[in-house]
Simulated scan of single mutants.
Amino acid sequence: MPNRLALKRKSAYLAQLGRCYYCGLPMWQDDLDSFSRAHNIKPSQAKPLKCTAEHLEARQDGGLDTAQNIVAACWSCNQRRHKRKKAPAPDAYLDLVQQRVRKGRWHCAPLLTAFGALFAGHDSGGEATS
Rank of each mutant, 00 (worst) to 15 (best):
A6N: 13
A6V: 00
A6L: 11
L7A: 11
K8H: 12
K8L: 15
K8T: 12
K8A: 14
R9T: 06
R9W: 01
R9P: 06
K10C: 00
K10W: 08
A12F: 01
Y13G: 04
Y13D: 05
Y13T: 03
L14V: 15
L14D: 15
G18Y: 06
Y22V: 11
C23W: 05
C23V: 07
G24Q: 05
G24V: 05
G24L: 10
L25H: 06
M27H: 07
M27E: 10
W28I: 00
W28N: 03
Q29I: 11
D30T: 07
D30S: 15
D31A: 10
L32G: 03
D33L: 13
S34N: 12
F35L: 05
F35S: 10
F35E: 02
S36N: 07
S36A: 15
R37E: 15
A38C: 02
A38E: 11
N40F: 01
N40S: 14
I41S: 09
I41P: 10
I41D: 04
I41L: 04
I41G: 08
K42Y: 02
K42I: 00
P43F: 12
S44G: 03
Q45R: 04
A46F: 09
K47T: 12
P48H: 06
P48E: 08
L49T: 06
L49W: 08
L49A: 00
K50R: 15
C51E: 10
A53I: 03
H55V: 13
H55I: 10
L56E: 02
A58E: 15
R59M: 09
Q60H: 11
Q60C: 07
Q60W: 02
Q60F: 02
D61W: 08
G62A: 14
G62I: 11
G63T: 07
T66S: 13
T66E: 13
A67K: 04
Q68K: 09
Q68C: 06
N69T: 06
I70D: 08
I70V: 15
I70P: 08
V71R: 15
V71I: 06
A72R: 11
A73V: 03
C74I: 12
W75Y: 12
W75R: 15
S76M: 07
S76A: 00
N78E: 08
N78F: 03
Q79A: 09
R80K: 13
R80M: 11
K83G: 00
R84E: 06
K85R: 11
K86V: 13
K86Y: 02
P88W: 00
P88Y: 03
D91Q: 12
D91E: 13
A92S: 13
L94R: 14
L96I: 00
L96A: 10
V97G: 05
Q99I: 14
V101S: 08
V101E: 06
V101N: 09
R102A: 14
G104L: 06
W106D: 01
H107E: 08
C108R: 15
A109C: 00
P110L: 01
P110V: 01
L111V: 10
T113S: 01
T113C: 00
A114M: 08
F115V: 05
G116S: 14
G116Q: 11
F119W: 09
F119L: 07
F119D: 08
A120N: 05
G121Y: 08
G121K: 09
G121M: 02
H122R: 14
D123A: 09
D123S: 07
S124Q: 12
S124P: 13
S124F: 06
S124K: 01
S124I: 03
G125K: 08
G126N: 10
E127G: 07
E127V: 10
T129D: 00
S130V: 11
S130K: 11
